[in-house]
Design a binder for these strands. Sequence first.
DNA 1: TTAAAATGTCTATTGATATAGACAACCATA
DNA 2: TATGGTTGTCTATATCAATAGACATTTTAA
Lengths: 245, 245
Amino acid sequence: MAGLKQVQRQTGVALWRQIADRIREAISGGAYDETGMVPPETVLALQFGVNRHTVRSALAALAQEGIVRAVQGRGTLIERKERLNFPITRRTRFTSGIGDQAREMRGLLLDEAEKEASAEVARWLGLKQGERVIRLETLRQADKRPVSRATSWFPAKRFAGIGQVYRKHESITKAFAELGLSDYVRATTEVTAAHASTGDLADLELTPGAILLIAKAMNTDLDGVPVQYSVSRFAADRVQFTIEN
Amino acid sequence: MAGLKQVQRQTGVALWRQIADRIREAISGGAYDETGMVPPETVLALQFGVNRHTVRSALAALAQEGIVRAVQGRGTLIERKERLNFPITRRTRFTSGIGDQAREMRGLLLDEAEKEASAEVARWLGLKQGERVIRLETLRQADKRPVSRATSWFPAKRFAGIGQVYRKHESITKAFAELGLSDYVRATTEVTAAHASTGDLADLELTPGAILLIAKAMNTDLDGVPVQYSVSRFAADRVQFTIEN
DNA sequence: TTAAAATGTCTATTGATATAGACAACCATA
DNA sequence: TATGGTTGTCTATATCAATAGACATTTTAA
């Protein structure tokens, strides 16, 4: 069933990378669950119609990502195949949403700045362009494995000092609570996908060409007043979103 | 503001393709709306820190996709910059959801088959594994431009002949109506992203390395009985999803 | 009309990608 | 312990990707 011509040449994407992407997907889809191993290099080479060395380049990349581990004489073992699920609902929260899927959740503050709202940020937060906003750059981890990089904006007047509070609690929900906002709801989420930028590659420990799921989200308080606009970038091969209606 | 080092070397993705992806994104994001043109090749080369010829390869690829058109002496004009928006709500429908964003919507039936439900399909449709289901392969277009490839499964007993009906109406909603189901709702949507497979590349007129947004959706009738499970693959650079809560 | 600014074309060179073949090293098992 | 199957390493070669420079062609505007 696994066919011929699954890869294409002269497209700006190296064969070894195309093959790595296919194998990563097959692993994630449970195609090799019976053996817990990837097929032998010679078999893969035949399947994809390429040289064995090209397959080796692909497997080396996957080993670099920690997905497989090659053992001389035995074969190439699958090390990891998880995919976290993020429910997107009116009550979406990062930490609680994946509570039972990981043991340790962390939210690290990478950077904090107060500045004037850009046109886009002002539109989402219902402010005038140029009003003061606080921008937080955060990295979220599940069991010490980076999951998402987020850039969040808050109205500066209402949430002064949110950076420090977030650093203490490692949670937006708790930071809001300490600043007097006991509850909030997710108003809108826009989902797109794109190739990872260089900065995100480093933070999320990805290799170039990797895919991001991008969620632009706006949260409001219970009166419908915007309290947060955020752009979160997720490593696409580690997560999925679920929308329940 | 457009920074340095937006591209990386020796990653299996050619520089010209990385640059093409970035420019396509910038166009889609409205970065060049003032002039309606891409910056001069020499400027782009400086921005990305590469040779002018590498930028030319990227622009040639975008011209091939019909996104830009180079005019000697003038510059490189932007021809097309759409990104369709798909609202995902309880009443999600493909055709009406993007009604005002495109003039002509079509749904082409590529293939139809009746077979036994796999474990995954049975789980989503609430059937026993092995029960009969009808599988439709469809291609959806907006203004003659391919937007998504979908594989849908329906309980065979309830929706016998849905393929023929779909071919006539080019719409799931109308096909349901003719078969006696006047209304239905979206119960669950799972969103992931992945590289396009070879088959999808051809159908969606993409080049290898392209990204897909993948929506696995389950629709039920008003009594909550599953009527359709579908896996839709969208060209990520042509669409975005919006979830309103 | 001229000059500046932009894309188009050509040649040459270097490094990454892919193929090809041979053989070593290691593991499991008959 | 011998054998078959697997990964690891090495050499060599051809093609694609990227850089570099020079100059032609076209458009716009001074």
